[in-house]
């Protein structure tokens, strides 16, 4: 079935793929500053923001962009076991296989024994899940300047405390990611659709409809993706039921946006 709605629906699947990264003015500026920060002799970079602001996408994009020029290691899911964490890092960065338990002291010996011309970058996503002691050890590892850490944190009240207590004095660069504005969201949606050659679908999003979407999602990319996925799912169902003529196709009607929001739980009906 080659329906434009079905194709558009797939665009908004909640998958973190650096190929789907959308260049927005503000986001690209932030990204550039992050890239510049990695080049600087900084020990640790903190990337923080509310869930769905694009932190993971940022890390993925950074990994994709840097991997050609230097050794970059991305850990999308946190390695909660401390020994496993050291063992993974030793294997990936230093190519040292360790069969038994690897503690911090042993790992530090490995780190100190190796010396790189270009400091390898370790990207840790969802760092708020790491234990406090492990975070402290990550800080100690970064102090050796043998490994550079870029960590992402959810900006919640609790995570703010972690950031303050453990990284306030040790972080030399912190970048905050925010929700998109209504205009940015319109660009994001349209660019995303056009990237997938869904031009008709992209034209359906007028300022009014995007404003309604922004009001529901507060410009959160993840929520927007969820909403638009459901929206195009509804379109597809209407199309399959031969009821597409009953709804507007030249412009996304508020009714369908609200229906999608109800289904995704963004609107409490």
């Amino acid at each position: 079935m080659n329906s434009i709605y079905l194709k558009s629906k797939d665009v908004f699947l909640d998958i973190v793929n650096p190929k789907d990264y959308i260049q927005l003015d503000r986001v690209s500026t932030i990204y550039q500053s992050l890239k510049d920060s990695i080049k600087k002799p900084l020990k640790m970079i903190l990337l923080y923001g509310r869930p769905g602001t694009g932190k993971s996408m940022f890390l993925n994009k950074l990994h994709q962009d840097l991997s050609s020029s230097q050794s970059v290691f991305l850990y999308k899911t946190p390695i909660l076991d401390e020994s496993e964490f050291y063992k993974t890092l030793a294997q990936d960065i230093f190519e040292v296989r360790y069969s038994g338990e690897l503690n911090f002291t042993q790992f530090m010996k490995i780190v100190e024994s190796k010396n790189f011309d270009v400091v390898p970058v370790v990207l840790l996503d969802e760092a708020q899940l790491y234990s406090e002691s492990l975070m402290e050890r990550i800080r100690l590892l970064s102090d050796t300047r043998t490994i550079k850490f870029v960590i992402t944190l959810h900006k919640t009240e609790k995570e703010d405390i972690i950031a303050k207590e453990h990284f306030q004095t040790r972080i030399w660069e912190s970048i905050e990611l925010e929700n998109a504005s209504s205009t940015e969201l319109k660009i994001y949606i349209q660019k995303k659709l056009m990237k997938a050659n869904c031009f008709d679908s992209a034209n359906m999003f007028t300022g009014k409809s995007v404003h309604r979407i922004h009001k529901i999602t507060n410009g959160n990319y993840r929520d927007t993706n969820k909403l638009l996925y459901t929206l195009f799912d509804i379109y597809t169902i209407y199309e399959n039921n031969n009821k597409i003529t009953a709804i507007k196709t030249e412009q996304v009607p508020n009714k369908l946006i609200e229906m999608a929001a109800i289904h995704t739980g963004l609107i409490d009906a």
């Binding site: 509804i234 169902i237 209407y238 609200e258 229906m259 109800i262 289904h263 009906a269």
Partner: peptide, 18 residues
């Protein structure tokens, strides 16, 4: 698969509520 009829009903209730 979405239940469109149910969703329309929920939307109608939501509209009334709003």
């Amino acid at each position: 698969m979405l239940n469109i009829i149910d969703l329309e009903k929920r939307w109608f209730r939501y509209k009334i509520k709003s």
